[in-house]
Design a protein around this nucleic acid. Sequence first.
RNA 1: GCGGAUGUAACUCAGUUGGUAGAGUGUUGGCCUGAAAAGCCAAAGUCAGGGGUUCAAUUCCCCUCAUCCGCA
Length: 296
Amino acid sequence: MQKIIVILGPTASGKTHLAINLAKKFEGYIISADSRQIYRGMDIGTDKLPEKERRGVEHRMIDIVDPNQEFSLAQYQKRVFSIIKQSDKLPFLVGGTGLYIKAVVDNLDIPKSGPDKVLRKKLEEKSNEELLKELIKLDVAAARTIDENNRRRLIRAIEVCRTTGHKFSKQTSKQKPIVNALQIGVSAPREELYQKIDRRVDEMIKEGLIEEAKKLGERYGWDIPSMSAIGYRQLGLYFQKRITLKEAVELIKKDTRNYARRQLTWFRKDERIHWIKSQPEAEKLIKNFIKKIPRA
RNA sequence: GCGGAUGUAACUCAGUUGGUAGAGUGUUGGCCUGAAAAGCCAAAGUCAGGGGUUCAAUUCCCCUCAUCCGCA
């Protein structure tokens, strides 16, 4: 089974920097596990590491689609597995999108049902109550676990039931893993993390995030999924004259902090993650991990 | 010093004709399987402090304190 190293953690925790050092040291390459860095042109706001700072380390799953192209969890999973199979080098899966990481590490069995735009649009017109009622008819177990107000998930569950003919709740299992992952977590005390986030947002503004967002917004519009990314969405509100620039910047900070909190919640429950405080600690873990010969 | 106003969640403020309280924002905890930087759920207050009236006070009365505004 292919061994992979996962470097995860909340935004602004310093994963990228650590990952570069480690990938360099162990002669590996990096696969991004970041749902927004896949978009071309979204550079400053997603804190993409510029080419010249990658120190020759190969990066995958960055800049793979244009912002107006659709992308999804299932596609991410497929692509990553195929990348891993192609190379003998040690992959470093680096990012903060917990679900994407999980899809790879646990080989999630994602329902084989792509988005059905027509159906979604029709369901979008229904009230929460109507959606819930419909889901109860199709899949009681799923209806019980999804909150009535969470339209996004209600609609998705109905979509899966209708297009596959099988219950959504029966199609969300893990499969036999196909990678052997060492998960390393990077974080910082909450207060420190929040300060870093605020500072980084100011930095992004200085580096030209406003211009970058404006260009993308003018070209693709503000309502597509990719533009819901933190930074772009809030500046979109500014360019549409809904809020002031100052409010937009504050909102970016706030939303980033909230995002970091959600990331921590997600990662916290996975007990396989080794939370480290320093690079040598990570190196030691990796050395032991690659030395170990898995039982056949 | 005198007169007036205000004091309710971390912040800004509602509210209870007396039956121990809400909203928005923030904070914290949680959920998550083809939109995930998305979407969603939940929690926390001795109603400034003390006394009085009352079966019952955050609400009425008195005192104290704090803040603000006038007049000196």
